[in-house]
């Protein structure tokens, strides 16, 4: 508002009412003059209001409020307010931003829901494992997380692994052991591409860490299949998914209500299966998750206590030095002798 006034106006106002104020800095004086002239005619009733308006605390808090609003807006919407942007591509080309879902493990103190991890493994085994490998998870990793030792051994033994060489130098097949890793659905990448129309199904071991949005993105992707909007050209063999960058994904929708049958009686809806499998994949990407949060809790408590103690000790030791007073006694003047 002030900046719209010509400089001369301020100078004239200052010449009229300036002497009533005696501020220390020239900048503050300029503001107080202009404010005074525009808001009141100088009655004593409004002097409290004037001093409030002219105070540095008000200026600082208004500045802080303004900067805070802009920062909040920027963090919320991703762009500065009132400044337009031009993009060559539309926002949909980078994939729809997934909403945040309240995961059972998203809080600071929350562990994984291991019943959900177990159901998610079932979904992975019966649905995802047809195309996606899980290279970095061994059968032994499931023990004590989602399955007992006996269950994990039984599941491993159902799979044949190539081992060897034996005494004759021959490779042989044997049933799986706990130390074996999850069997891949395809022998190599070329076979995987050939079986999926040229698209490579990514390994799912670290997929939650490897995608922006993490579990939210994967859940949105799995449940986000729908008909393409009018005018959206989609190639043969591709599927429309607004959450996938480019919106055309080779993977078709795989999760349908009642696709698997949960042993614990949980209704196998699409979103339930997606939630469970994402929880399982989140565990696969971060198997240390539970222990990490627990150790982090301990570390935060211990280090805060130690910081508080060290701050107190510092103040205690320095209190003598800070509060001492050094007095200089000038020598007696001897010149009068």
């Amino acid at each position: 508002m002030l900046s719209r006034l010509p400089a001369g106006a301020l100078r004239n106002v200052g010449a009229v009412v300036g002497p009533r104020f005696s501020c220390s800095t020239s900048n503050a004086r300029l503001v107080s003059r202009a404010r005074f002239a525009s808001t009141s005619s100088g009655s004593s009733a409004s002097s409290a209001f004037e001093s409030f308006i002219n105070s540095r605390a008000t200026l600082a808090s208004v500045t802080l409020f303004t900067a805070g609003s802009i920062a909040w807006y920027t963090s919320l919407y991703g762009t500065l307010p009132f400044i337009g942007e031009v993009h060559a591509n539309s926002a949909a080309d980078e994939g729809l931003h997934p909403p945040h879902y309240p995961w059972s493990h998203s809080g600071w103190f929350d562990s994984f829901d291991h019943a959900s991890v177990r159901r998610g493994y079932q979904v992975y085994r019966e649905v995802c494992a047809a195309c996606h490998s899980l290279d970095r998870i061994a059968w032994r990793n499931l023990v004590g997380v989602s399955h007992t030792v006996d269950e994990a051994k039984a599941m491993a033994e159902e799979v044949e692994y190539e081992d060897g060489p034996d005494d004759q130098g021959e490779m042989f097949q044997r049933p799986g052991k706990l130390s074996d890793y999850m069997p891949p659905p395809y022998a190599n990448e070329e076979a995987a591409r050939a079986g999926n129309g040229g698209a490579l199904p990514p390994d799912l071991s670290l997929i939650v860490k490897a995608r922006h949005g993490g579990p939210d993105y994967i859940f949105s992707l799995l449940t986000g299949y729908r008909d393409p909007p009018a005018g959206f050209e989609i190639r043969e063999g591709m599927n429309y998914n607004p959450y996938f960058p480019g919106n055309a994904i080779s993977m078709a929708r795989v999760l349908f209500d009642g696709l698997v049958e949960y042993a614990d009686g949980t209704p196998a809806t699409t979103s339930q299966m997606a939630k469970d499998v994402v929880t399982f994949l989140n565990w696969a990407a971060e198997p240390e998750h539970d222990e990490r949060k627990k150790s982090g809790l301990k570390a935060v408590i211990l280090f805060s206590a130690l910081t508080a103690i060290s701050l107190y000790v510092k103040r205690f030791k320095w209190s003598v030095i800070k509060s001492r007073k050094i007095i200089y006694n000038p020598p007696a003047d001897k010149s009068t002798h």
Binding site: S104, F109, D110, S111, F112, D113, H114, A115, R118, G144, V145, S146, H147, T148, E151, D264, D290, K294, L297, K298, I301
Partner: peptide, 21 residues
């Protein structure tokens, strides 16, 4: 810390559901 952790995550950890399997 462990007792707080277990009470906060009651029913979610493996040791809570282990008996079923």
């Amino acid at each position: 810390i462990t007792s707080f952790w277990d009470s906060w995550n009651k029913g979610k950890q493996w040791k809570d559901i282990r008996d079923k399997y």
